[in-house]
Computed example of a mutant assay.
Amino acid sequence: MLVVGAAPGPVVEVLTLGAALHTLTVTCGDGVRRNVALGHRSVEDRLASPAYVGATVGRYANRIAGASFELDGREVRLAANEDGNSLHGGPDGFDRRLWEVVSQTEDEVVLELVSPDGDQGFPGTVTARVAYQVDGDGVTIELTATTDAPTVVNLTHHAYLNLDGQDAGTVDDHVLEVPSDHYLPVLEGIPTGIAPVDGTPFDLRAPTRVGQAARSGHEQVAAACGLDHCLAVRGDGLRRHATLSTPTTSTRVELWSDQPGLQVFTANFDAPVPSLAGGIYRMGDGLALEPQLFPDTPHHPQWPSAVLRPGETYRSRIEWRFA
C-alpha cells in the first residue's frame, strides 16, 4: 500500500495493482474525515469485479466499436470484451496489471507500466506513467504515455466518488454541474454522434440532483439504466469539468482536467460489486467522472485524435479540488 498526503488534507492510498486508488480520505464540510472513494477489500475482489473501481484504465479508456480500427492504412484488430467491442483496453487492460513504483515522497507517488507491442492487439510498445500528488486540499493525477510505433492511447482514472463516505449508500442526493452544451448519444455504448444537451437529462449546466438525471425516463438514460455518457466539456486546456457536492456532509469537489470529454457514469452495475467493507455496492452508490478523449475516436476522424506517434508524449491531467 502506497500512502500519499497527511491530515488534515487529503490522504490517498494507492495500489500497484491497476495503479488504483484504494482510498481517498478528506476532511468533509462537517469536519469529519471520511474515505470518499469506493474500493475493494481484497485483491481477489478487485480481480473479480467488473467495475474498474479506482483503477487507471487503458490503453484506450471507454469503447472502440467492433474491437478494430484502421491506422495508417492497415486494420488493427483488438481483443473484444464487451458485445464485440473493446472496453477500457480489452479483457486484460491496464487495470489488471501490476505497475512498478518509480518514485515516492510524502506528497507524490509515480508508477509505470510497459505495455508490449501487440498487447490486447494494440500496436507499439507503450510506456505509461501515472503520478498521484497531494497539494493542500487537492489531489492531482497526471497520466503520460510514449510509444515506439504509431498507436492509439486514451487513459483515464476510474474513481467512484461518494462525498458522504464510501459506505453511505446512494449518491442520488448529490448535486452535479458540468459546463457542457453537447453530449454523445450512444447505441449499445457506442457513440452515434454529438447532440445538444438542451431538453435532456444531460443538461447539467445548472446544478442538478444526480438522482433526477439518472432516473429520467429519457430513452438514452433508460437504455443505460442511468447515465453512462460522454459530455463534451466547453473550452480548451485545463478547466473545470464538473462540480459535485452533497448537502449531507456539506462537502464539495471541483474536477479540473485538460481533456475534451467527461464520461459521467452513475454506477449502473449489472453484477455484484464487492465493497471495501465486505458487503456489496449497489447501483448508484458512487459516481464516476472520467475525463478522457471521446469514445471510439478511431472511427470518428473529425473528433480529437487518439493517435500517438514516436517522439510524442500523451498527457492527461486530472485534479480534484476539495472544499
Rank of each mutant, 00 (worst) to 15 (best):
D181Y: 00
R205F: 05
S257I: 00
G193A: 02
D167I: 06
W256I: 01
A214P: 15
S257K: 01
S216N: 11
T192Q: 03
T246N: 13
D198W: 01
E219W: 03
W256D: 03
T243L: 13
A149V: 15
L163F: 06
P260K: 08
P260L: 03
P260G: 10
T192P: 05
L262E: 10
L176W: 12
V186Y: 04
G237W: 08
D228A: 07
A232Q: 14
L227Y: 08
E219Q: 07
G226D: 15
S257T: 01
P247T: 05
E188T: 13
V153Y: 12
D270S: 09
T266Y: 06
S180A: 15
A168K: 04
A271N: 14
A223Q: 15
S275R: 06
L276M: 14
F265T: 05
V221D: 12
T200F: 02
D167L: 06
A271I: 12
G189D: 11
H157L: 01
D236F: 08
H241R: 03
A213C: 11
V175A: 03
G261P: 06
P185G: 08
L231H: 05
A224I: 13
V233K: 07
D258Y: 01
R205E: 10
G217Q: 00
I194F: 00
S275F: 08
L184G: 02
N268P: 10
R205T: 13
S216W: 12
V197G: 03
D181H: 02
L161Q: 10
V171M: 08
T248L: 01
W256Q: 01
P207L: 03
S250W: 04
G237K: 05
E219P: 11
P185V: 02
P274D: 15
L187M: 05
T156E: 07
A149K: 15
C225V: 12
D236N: 14
D167P: 08
P201D: 05
P150F: 12
G217D: 04
Y183M: 00
V178H: 02
L262S: 08
T246P: 15
S250V: 07
T208Y: 11
Y183R: 00
N162S: 10
P179H: 04
V197D: 05
P185I: 02
L161N: 11
C225L: 14
P247H: 09
A168W: 02
Y183S: 00
L244Q: 09
P179K: 04
T251S: 14
T208Q: 10
D270G: 09
C230L: 03
T249I: 00
Q263K: 07
F202A: 01
D172M: 02
H218W: 11
L262D: 10
A242D: 06
G199C: 01
D270C: 08
L176Y: 12
T200S: 09
F265I: 00
P196Q: 05
E254P: 09
P272L: 11
V175Q: 06
T248S: 06
R215D: 15
V264W: 00
V253T: 08
D228S: 12
D228I: 03
D270H: 05
L176S: 11
T156G: 07
V197T: 04
V186R: 07
H158G: 11
A206W: 15
V153S: 13
R234H: 10
Y183Q: 00
A213L: 09
T151G: 00
A277K: 12
V153K: 12
Q263C: 06
P191G: 03
P150I: 10
H158W: 10
P191L: 01
V171G: 11
V210A: 13
S250A: 13
